[in-house]
Design a binder for these strands. Structure first.
Length: 424
RNA sequence: GGAGAGAUGGCAGAGUGGUCGAUUGCGGCGGUCUUGAAAACCGUUGUACUGUGAGGUACCGGGGGUUCGAAUCCCUCUCUCUCCGCCA
């Protein structure tokens, strides 16, 4: 979320930037400015009364010690009025503060100046296109047919056990999952990321910290008895490692990678989007998360984009990188690059990674700070994350792009992990 | 699931109604000494909000209460630990 101070100091800038996300913030900003001032006035009054109260209490204690109980009783009477005033000012403060928090949470992150102003996915800017389009054999198939033909994935079995969107991977299908996870984690480690294994279930505070709660509540599986949520991405538990933490500036950027299963309700999805592996309720992903110095976070973002590029290139998949437009980017992001790979059997691009700089938006919620080397004061850090990579669509693309009449070829980098060069 | 114990500053660990934002130790930072380091000694060392500033206020797991005054007493919630049971 944006800090109140920032909104107060830059109201017009906030309104102008949020317009790029097609969010009209004028009324909200106006309310924030008015409430912020009122809140501070209440605090000032309350603090004054409390100071007086503290002083009085000390005096009363002193009087008792000296045995002047009559004077003490007199002083006690004065506290009654003060107490009531404190109560009123505090109530007012609490009420205004809650309203402010409400407004704050509703305001999206400001898009960076690089963000194009479009409205829909059509308006995203293709910044890089790479790889070579495969030449498919006669009678090529989409991945769900290939998965059935080679007995790699059983979608119906998943329906029996759980429901649609929870496939069962079998044989080389299961092994391919494991191969990709290991490949991605090994690559991340070599690139300097610390591997962690986070919980797959998080509490409410964590959901709030990364911005899933309160507004995206419906997208997560929820265990109300325990007040816990299944993670939609490892971003949530991993970024929350740093909630309420003050890190040393010299440790920045902090680079963390984690594999996790991800759970998404995906309410409202339908049609070709959910066919096969295109959109699942449970899927595997390796996520990279970085904590960066505010002056260096865009350098970090570029590094992450370059890193993800190496992954799709090593897998030999045709890809493109999109810079998301204001209308298509997420609530929490300041700048997002999406990676798409070509799904030759379906003839469409599939999103396999989203790399974002959240600047201070998450860090404000998380109270994630670094200690400034010069001033020694805690400052809000920047957070970034990206998929590196999400498995199902990579699998879809691999199966389709590498299909041959003899079987599915295994990309060279995966051969050591798969123990074979072709899936028959 | 049953029984008990506990939650204090980066960590360890005091503190049972008043001058306690909190003794002390460790760690960190600065300094003296040293060719350098260690040791020793001295000093310093939380966060947030607010105020132009001096300063003020809040915070001892969360919330509520008693009191002129709460880290300290009461209620409640959450969490952690130990033992037993069950178990990957």
């Amino acid at each position: 979320m944006l800090s109140l101070k920032f909104i107060q100091d830059n109201p017009e800038f906030v309104i102008e930037r949020l317009a790029v996300k097609h969010f009209d913030a004028r009324a909200m900003v106006g309310q924030v400015l008015a409430l912020y001032q009122k809140r501070n006035e209440s605090q000032l009054e309350s603090d004054r009364c409390k100071a007086e109260m503290n002083q009085l209490s000390k005096e009363i204690g002193q009087l008792f010690k000296e045995g002047k109980s009559e004077e003490a009783a007199l002083a006690k009477e004065k506290t009654v009025v003060l107490k009531e005033r404190i109560r009123l000012f505090d109530e007012e403060f609490e009420s205004i503060d809650a309203q402010l928090a409400q407004l704050q949470v509703q305001m999206p992150n400001l898009p960076s100046s690089l963000v194009p102003g479009g409205r829909t996915a059509e308006d995203n800017e293709v910044v890089v296109q790479g790889g070579v389009m495969p030449v498919l054999p006669e009678g090529y198939k989409p991945h769900w047919e290939l998965a059935a033909q080679y007995d790699l994935i059983d979608f119906e079995l998943g329906v029996k056990i759980t429901g649609a969107g929870f496939p069962v991977y079998k044989g080389y299908g299961a092994r391919l999952q494991r191969a990709l996870i290991n490949f991605f984690l090994d690559q991340a480690r070599e690139a300097g990321y610390l591997e962690v294994q986070p919980p797959y279930v998080v509490n409410e505070a964590s959901g709030f910290g990364t911005g899933q709660l309160p507004d995206k509540e419906g997208q997560m599986y929820h265990c109300p008895v325990d007040g816990l949520y299944l993670i939609p991405t490892a971003e949530v538990p991993v970024t929350n490692i740093f909630r309420d933490v003050i890190v040393d500036a010299k440790d920045l950027p902090i680079k963390t990678a984690a594999y996790s299963a991800c759970f998404r309700r995906e309410a409202g999805s339908y049609g070709k989007d959910v066919r096969g592996l295109n959109r699942l309720h449970q899927f595997d992903k390796v996520e990279i998360v970085r904590i960066a110095h505010p002056d260096k976070s865009y350098e970090s973002l570029d590094e992450m984009v370059r890193y993800v590029t190496t992954l799709v290139e090593k897998l030999g998949l045709p890809y493109r990188i999109l810079r998301l437009c204001g209308g298509d980017m997420s609530f929490t992001s300041a700048l997002t690059y999406d990676f798409e790979v070509w799904s030759a059997g379906q003839g469409r691009w599939l999103e396999v990674s989203s790399v974002s700089n959240f600047e201070s938006f998450q860090a404000n919620r998380l109270k994630l700070r670094y200690r400034d080397e010069a001033t020694k004061k805690p400052q809000i850090a920047h957070t970034l994350n990206g998929s590196a990579l999400a498995l199902p669509r990579i699998v879809a693309s691999l199966l389709e792009n590498y299909q041959t009449p003899e079987g599915i070829r295994v990309p060279d980098v995966l051969v050591p992990y798969m123990g074979c060069e072709i899936i028959r």
